[in-house]
Amino acid sequence: MPNSALSTLLILALSLTSLASNALENEEVLSPELVQSLEIDQDKITIIDFFASWCVSCRIELPQIAKLIPQLDAQQVEVIGINVDEEISEGQAYIDTFKKSGGLNFRVFMDPEQELIDIFEPLGMPALYYIQNGIVKKMHLGAMPNIDQVILTDLSSLGYLSNAGDQ
């Protein structure tokens, strides 16, 4: 095989290799501007859920999360949803489909320009992040069965007091 062919092959192979990712990892700090933009309460554990209308797993998980929220102590936990559909109308229509099952009872940010998710850079959708004191404490990327139970387990590991809301 001639040298030129080998070099072409090498360039093609290298072009397909993945480069380093800038994704937010555990224990990384969110910028104050981002915290302010999302109006994250530093005293609470904030769960950020990225979703989109075309993500089928999101359709399964979102009602479970919405159902879980009334059981959580609002003084300790807050859930924020971020819709990353490029078309707002699609995202809005998608959110409206949940009205039959009670709707989404948490704040939802529409991010058509995908600025927010571009900061987090999750490796899969849906993406769930736990933020405490402006620091990423935990994350789940991709579909998770029984997400409500997963969230409860994660919250207890982050110091959430499940009985505090009853007092």
Partner: peptide
């Protein structure tokens, strides 16, 4: 309501209509 639109310098025509409706 509980939906917040992140600022966006670039919006498609569809998005423009959706914002108007909101």
């Amino acid at each position: 309501n509980n939906i917040v639109l992140i600022n966006s310098a670039k919006k498609t025509q569809k998005n423009h209509n959706a914002v108007a409706q909101l």
